[in-house]
Amino acid sequence: MDLRFLVQLGIIGLTFFMLINASAVLVLAERKIMGFMQQRYGPYLVGPHGTLQPFADILKLLFKEELRPKGSDKWLFNLAPLLSVVAAFAAFSTVPWGAETTFFGLLDEPVALGVADLNVGVLVIFAITSMGVYGIVLAGWASNSKYSLLGGLRASAQMISYELSYATALAAVILLAGSLSLRDVVDAQQGTWLGFIPHWYVFLQPIGFLIYVIAGVAETNRAPFDFPEAEQELVAGYNTEYSSVRFALFPQAEYINMATMSAVATDLYLGGWHGPFLPPEYGWIWFLAKVGVLLFTYIWVRWTVPRYRYDQLMSFGWKWLFPASVVNLLVTAALVLYFNA
């Protein structure tokens, strides 16, 4: 077996490992930040300053009894959480997270940091995240419970509404970069304007970025768009009837989806691993820092903005967000045509 193959396997393993840990770190970060915002400490007992709380949580959930309601669909009930998690992990497979590197001369030819680089990478991410909704919808239906069913129905309607704006916002960036490969999009954002403004697409596509972030929050079912689980209306929505490990898989999928959304936003709008001060081999530090900022914003928004009403969500998605993204795409297309011609 040659070294290159082993290194690539290692990168895949590392990506997987980072994603698994991202959900643990995010659980803790969410509770700590929420605590800070509500003027309390958050989890504090397990480990120093409560840092081991996620491990305590997962151990507790592992040892809980697993229940399945009467009249629920056995196969789909068991399948749904797995679908959610598999889709969440698989979506990250075409997200690059670092420049090509030789690992300080270990390899003759540089390898890229990221699982795979396809020439339709952006679309693959989009396709897999759009499959993730089946986990939630099936969980809602298979539970044989009113609250779960309502949660599942809301999830399917919400996904369809926001996926359109999301994809249209993506298309504008693809037009600018002229490629569907995420690595090409990131490399198109190298350099600066006037020597100090980084050549990031967020400055060319401010409206597109805003639409992407809003639709991304709705796609990952986070507050203020967390209608599928809306605890004040639907008990816990689609995961009301779940317990033990299967229950744990849903938030796990949600946190991994958040990480994927932030990573894709970093690659598309924030210049990926390009940044000042650091040599390109250390670009992944920039990448992680940018993803961290976006994830913090996710949590920040959740604990500051109250949930909308469901009809407000629908009318906002169709009457404001989608037209705005279409106009954004048209203007971008016209400008690209004008400047390229």
Partner: peptide, 8 residues
């Protein structure tokens, strides 16, 4: 997803 919505 729309099909599923209707069937549900």
């Amino acid at each position: 997803v729309l099909f599923l919505f209707v069937v549900m």
